[in-house]
Design a binder for these strands. Sequence first.
DNA 1: CGTTACGTTGAAAGCTTTCAAGCATCGTGG
DNA 2: CCACGATGCTTGAAAGCTTTCAACGTAACG
Lengths: 251, 251
Amino acid sequence: MNLVLPSTGRRVPCEQCPLRGLPAFRDFTEPELKFVSSFKRGELVAETGSAILSEGNHSPHLYTVLSGWAFRFKTLPDGRRQILNYLLPGDLLGLQGSVLGEMEHSVEALTPVILCVFQRDKLNELFEAHAGLGFDVTWLAAREERMLDEHLLSVGRRTAVERAAYLLAFLHNRAATLGPVTDKVLHVPLTQQHVADTLGLSIVHTNKTLRKLAEKDLIRWLDRSCEIIDPEGLQELADWDAPREITRPLI
Amino acid sequence: MNLVLPSTGRRVPCEQCPLRGLPAFRDFTEPELKFVSSFKRGELVAETGSAILSEGNHSPHLYTVLSGWAFRFKTLPDGRRQILNYLLPGDLLGLQGSVLGEMEHSVEALTPVILCVFQRDKLNELFEAHAGLGFDVTWLAAREERMLDEHLLSVGRRTAVERAAYLLAFLHNRAATLGPVTDKVLHVPLTQQHVADTLGLSIVHTNKTLRKLAEKDLIRWLDRSCEIIDPEGLQELADWDAPREITRPLI
DNA sequence: CGTTACGTTGAAAGCTTTCAAGCATCGTGG
DNA sequence: CCACGATGCTTGAAAGCTTTCAACGTAACG
């Protein structure tokens, strides 16, 4: 687990953000866009496996994922790790730290990640100057909460195979909202250890469980990545309905 | 599972809310209090075991628990149930439905519950007229997210006994923030089925697990309720640190 | 070429669920 | 007033799922 590289400074101006053009994100008004742009302090690059945020830190910043995949996790004092959720482009990161004062989870990069860095101090200003953006922050928090609800249901009540199917269907769905993966199959950048720590299973059992999904031709496991072959089949196996597509804010 | 009783209309004016005086809640300014008061439409009473909100409903309202205990849960199509979190006085309820448009979980009363009912339509107005209150809503959402993070860690990575200890320590802690239970022991209004559905265990195993905690004199199980005898012992067993006390907003 | 990270397997041990009863309390209808 | 059904708590035992232990194979890297 390396440290993150120092900020590389601003590169992408918000007005020309490559994400903002995607159909997944709602259009911002001119003033909103202007504010967000002034809110941004720069960019940060994190390599695969590096720690983006660490539990206990009083992180001074709020981030948005510009590109790459990452994950949030917590660990018990003896080292057991639980992955809480995954972060994809457009996701806000560090809100708990910004709002509640302290981060109680860590974040690590799953691929090379570029983050937009925002100034935590200006968060109050955001709420005051742009009620709509304030509402958006709440919206994003509620969305995260809903995802956690689903994960908790899954870890608590689904069988191992169902859990694995749910996780992969979920990740496929999230990636799909960013850009259709219709004719290209999606490769999720994970190790089996990540899957195990998400599902609450041991690595050995996870391996055997993923193998069952592979035998049904739902997925194919490659080196450090999972190819999602049949997302509908996974959904069906997990008895999970993907949420209907809604445009979301991009801060 | 009965239906909730119809609204009983306003009884407690926000300015004289019995909760607001508690040290757990931050002081509101005059205008904030006035707004919250105008935001409130009335009160709702729910009996033990009744459904307060149901999955799939487009709930038009936002609620705050005025008194009593309730819980949020999700179910799989085949009936398996997972309890997601508990609601105590001062907790906001229905935010996901208000913000994202649809409720994907249900809420049920654990004791008789009185709720303050707010108008969802005025939520935008809240953000516009009182940035501070808007921030507070985000704060509450981030707090809920943090609790879910902890639950997920627990269900995913703790052993059965640790999980049970964590849950009871957690509930004790939440109740304690509302009013010290120093010389009186706390009675948590639960059945073992609730505990099972929170921990992701079967009812039989839950029974045996709770028995182990009772043998260690950490708890005592009564009829439909759990007496927390040694909250510190439970925390230690679960290796869990209770969050430090922070005053929180009460909307 | 040794080391490390990741994936794979088989088998034994251990934990959890399921099945099957049984007990107690409570409210209700006969 | 008492029997009866419903709800909640208990227990023992067998079945089933998951972890742990122990190896092994491969690919990437220094």
